[in-house]
Simulated assay, not measured.
Amino acid sequence: MSHPELEQDPLFHDRLIEAVALRRDRDAFAHLFNHFAPRLKAWLIRSGAAPGAAEDFAQDAMLTVWRKADLFDPRKARAATWIFTIARNRRLDALRRDARPLPTPEIELAGEAVLRPDEILSMSEDTERVREALSRLSREQVEVLRFAFFLESPHSEIALHLNLPLGTVKSRIRNAMIKLRLILQPSREAPR
């Protein structure tokens, strides 16, 4: 279907879209497809799309023209503008869909709980008790505890770093923890 004299009319393609919308006119759509698909493909390639992807986007845009021709409003845009906008949006949607999402941080809606003064005092007292208990351990025991719990080093790394057998590291940690537990246990002699 070739209409060279009609194609000079600036509203020619608008009328073809209206024919597709009103009558599902296959000839009108074929003319739109033959006219716009190669232009869309070339434009998409110039925009950075690979040739195969550009062809897919162009075909997808034209399929959208067929399905949604009734949404075309010639008062808002000419046919070419509408069709090229559809192709651009299809490509942007694909780029967004293919992009790896950025990790989203966990959001705490309630915020951190505000500590009461007695809780702050209790934490301060606990910190002082632990500090005092650590001072009663041997230097070697404090050293392995520092690596294991404060630096979160695996036992094998501690053994390498301190040039000790793995069994010695485990033994020192176990003995230090037993001693700390005994020091920090509340006194069982409570008044009745």
Results as ranks from 00 to 15, higher is better:
59 Q>Y: 09
60 D>M: 04
63 L>T: 12
63 L>S: 06
63 L>P: 00
64 T>S: 14
64 T>Y: 05
64 T>V: 01
64 T>W: 11
64 T>H: 13
64 T>I: 00
64 T>Q: 09
65 V>S: 04
65 V>E: 05
66 W>T: 05
67 R>K: 15
68 K>T: 08
69 A>E: 00
70 D>F: 08
70 D>C: 10
71 L>P: 00
71 L>F: 09
73 D>K: 13
74 P>D: 02
74 P>I: 05
74 P>S: 06
75 R>V: 02
77 A>M: 09
77 A>L: 05
77 A>I: 08
77 A>W: 08
78 R>S: 11
81 T>H: 09
81 T>L: 06
82 W>G: 02
82 W>D: 04
83 I>E: 07
85 T>G: 14
85 T>W: 07
87 A>C: 01
87 A>S: 05
87 A>M: 02
88 R>W: 11
89 N>A: 06
90 R>P: 01
91 R>C: 07
91 R>P: 00
93 D>M: 06
94 A>W: 14
95 L>M: 12
95 L>A: 14
95 L>Q: 10
96 R>Q: 09
96 R>E: 09
96 R>V: 03
96 R>D: 05
97 R>W: 05
97 R>K: 15
100 R>S: 12
101 P>T: 13
102 L>E: 13
102 L>H: 14
102 L>F: 12
103 P>M: 13
103 P>R: 14
104 T>W: 04
105 P>H: 06
105 P>M: 09
106 E>K: 06
108 E>S: 13
108 E>M: 07
109 L>V: 12
110 A>R: 08
110 A>K: 07
111 G>T: 01
111 G>I: 01
111 G>P: 04
112 E>H: 08
112 E>N: 13
113 A>L: 11
115 L>G: 05
115 L>H: 07
115 L>Q: 09
116 R>W: 00
116 R>H: 03
116 R>K: 07
116 R>D: 00
117 P>H: 02
117 P>F: 01
118 D>F: 10
118 D>V: 14
121 L>M: 08
122 S>W: 09
124 S>W: 07
124 S>P: 01
125 E>R: 15
125 E>H: 14
126 D>E: 11
128 E>Q: 14
128 E>T: 13
128 E>I: 05
129 R>E: 07
129 R>F: 01
129 R>M: 07
129 R>H: 07
129 R>K: 15
130 V>A: 11
131 R>E: 10
131 R>W: 06
131 R>G: 05
132 E>Y: 09
132 E>Q: 14
133 A>W: 02
133 A>P: 01
133 A>K: 04
134 L>T: 12
